[in-house]
Amino acid sequence: METLDFRFASKPVSRVADPALCGVVGSGNLEILIKTGSEPAACRVSIKTSARGFGDTWQAVLGSFAAGHAAGGTEIAINDMGATPAVVTLRLAQALAEYQGGAQ
C-alpha cells in the first residue's frame, strides 16, 4: 500500500451539501469521500492505494480534475484498489456532483 498526499489550487466550490461518498473499494475500483476543507481556493487529496509507484499518474489525473472543476474548499480522501485513470476521473466527477447536492 502507498499513501499519497496532494494539494491543488482550484476555484471555490459553488454549492455545498453534506459529505459525499462515491464508489466501492473493490478490485479495479475505489471510493472517494469529499468533505469540507479549510482552504476555499484549494483542494486537498489524500490517497491510500494498493498499487505502488503511480504517484505521477495520480498527480496528473487529480491536477486535471482540480483545474477543470471548481473543487476549492474541499478535502478528498480516496481508498483505491487499482482503479484506472478513467474510473478515477468518472468517480471524482460523480462525488463532486453529489457533494454539491446534485446526486443522481
Partner: peptide, 22 residues
Amino acid sequence: LPPAESQPSPHLAMLDLPGAFD
C-alpha cells in the same frame, strides 16, 4: 456512523491493505 465519521480498519492497514471508510 457514516463514512465521514469513521475510520477504515487499522488491521487491514497493518497488513498493508487499503480499507473502506464504512
